[in-house]
């Protein structure tokens, strides 16, 4: 009888279906509970592992919450100055063209201080993967307004809500890079549900394949949450993200190769 099957009989090596990849180190992630960064790190690590690319990978971490990413992924990594990761990655890939090179950047890093580096690396069509985590807020410094903060959204530097007349409009960086001839594959995803995690992982895997084929810049935006900065529980923040972020930053491919 099924009910009689004990847990001990299920928990056997041959029945294993999911285990944290060995490419994630055992260091405890510095992220707040429920933060999407951990999930995004993990699926990137899974793709690198599954594609057998550990010895070929050089990653670039940003300044922001994920500055310590190099503590969590068991691959060679460089920590870039704020916003400069695409320039750093440009040189890595130019000098070591056979390696898999990625940057991992938040919205302040990529879409504010690093706008120039982002646009020009994409415009040159640098053969790198840029992963862009957009949660509409500066997490590490404690919840200030980001270039991607939604209109009316409250942050510690827009305490009455973002007033677009004085604070500017939320920037759709991914839409901009999709218009550049150097980008090959541009997509916007999320990691807050199992289905979305699977889609994002698929997108990253595609980007890895395209980089092998020397196709140009692949850009994967992950719309994510910031429970602490948004002052919500993780579960609430994911719901708020669906209701508020997704209408302005709709998920889906924005530029796909003509195959």
């Amino acid at each position: 009888m099924a009910e009689a099957t004990g847990i001990k009989e299920i928990i056997k090596p041959e029945n294993l279906v999911y285990k944290k990849t060995k490419l994630m180190t055992d260091n405890t992630l510095s992220y707040c509970p429920g933060c999407g960064h951990g999930t995004a790190h993990r699926i990137l690590a899974e793709v690198i592992d599954e594609e057998g690319l550990q010895s070929q990978t050089i990653g670039v971490s940003p300044v922001g919450c994920s500055v310590l990413m190099y503590n969590y992924l068991d691959v060679d990594m460089q920590e870039a100055a704020h916003g400069r990761a695409p320039a750093v990655a440009t040189a890595i890939k130019r000098l070591l063209p056979d390696k898999f090179v990625f940057t991992y950047q938040g919205d302040g890093d990529l879409a504010a201080i690093g706008t120039s580096e982002t646009i020009h690396a994409c415009n040159r069509g640098e053969n790198i993967l840029i992963i862009f985590i957009n949660n509409g807020i500066y997490g590490m410094t404690g919840g200030q307004m980001a270039p991607t903060t939604l209109e009316g959204m409250k942050t510690s530097t827009s305490p009455y809500g973002r007033d677009v007349k004085t604070m500017g409009n939320p920037l759709k960086m991914t839409d901009i890079v999709a218009t550049l001839p150097g980008t090959y594959y541009v997509t916007r995803q999320s990691v807050h549900t199992p289905a979305n995690v699977r889609k994002t992982k698929k997108a990253i895997r595609k980007a890895v394949q395209y980089q092998k084929l020397d196709k140009g810049t692949c850009f994967v935006e992950i719309v994510s949450n910031c429970p602490s900065g948004w002052k919500m529980t993780p579960v609430q923040s994911n719901k708020w993200m669906e209701e508020n972020m997704f209408p302005f930053y709709p998920l889906g491919d924005m530029k796909t190769p003509e195959e």
């Binding site: 099924a2 099957t5 009989e9 299920i10 928990i11 056997k12 029945n15 294993l16 279906v17 999911y18 285990k19 944290k20 990849t21 994630m24 405890t28 992630l29 992220y31 509970p33 429920g34 933060c35 999407g36 960064h37 951990g38 999930t39 993990r42 990691v191 807050h192 549900t193 199992p194 995690v197 699977r198």
Partner: peptide
Amino acid sequence: AMVCPDGVITVYKTKI
């Protein structure tokens, strides 16, 4: 396990 940000869940499955 798929959505766990901290990767703390290991999953097993079998047919009986």
